[in-house]
Amino acid sequence: MQRTTMDLWVGFFVLLGIGALLILSLKVGNLSTYGAKQSYGLVGNFENIGGLKVRAPVKSAGVVVGRVTDIQFSLETYDAVVTMRIGSDFTFPKDTFASILTAGLLGEQYIGLDAGGDETMLKDGDKIMITNSAIVLEEMIGRFLFDKAAEDDDESF
């Protein structure tokens, strides 16, 4: 039994397997971009989240700073409670403005953070006070049609 050559091959096999897992995590996946880093949680209440999903990116000035980790419906306020984790490198003032935006016309929805000017920073578990709901296309069209009809009514008088 050539134990040594067999061991060598098995060692090679295991190395190759671990290498493949590493490539998957670092090169194919996004572990390198945020997963391994420290992060802190923020909560925000939105009247309407539109098509926002768990794992959607949180961006500020177009840079991904975190991810949405949880979406719940609140029975007290009847709105959506969105939990997100932000990389510890990125700190935002207390009066930061969170809105749900759409990438392009049909793209995925994400949360955009606009920093305010407050001196104190948001900490882990804090709540973002100022939020802006998603723009829902149907509502927008509905409002547009309603306004148009109202205008037409005005003219007829």
């Binding site: 194919v28 996004n30 794992r55």
Partner: peptide, 8 residues
């Protein structure tokens, strides 16, 4: 690819 493939 990296933006859309999540590790976990």
């Amino acid at each position: 690819m990296q933006n859309n493939v999540d590790f976990r």
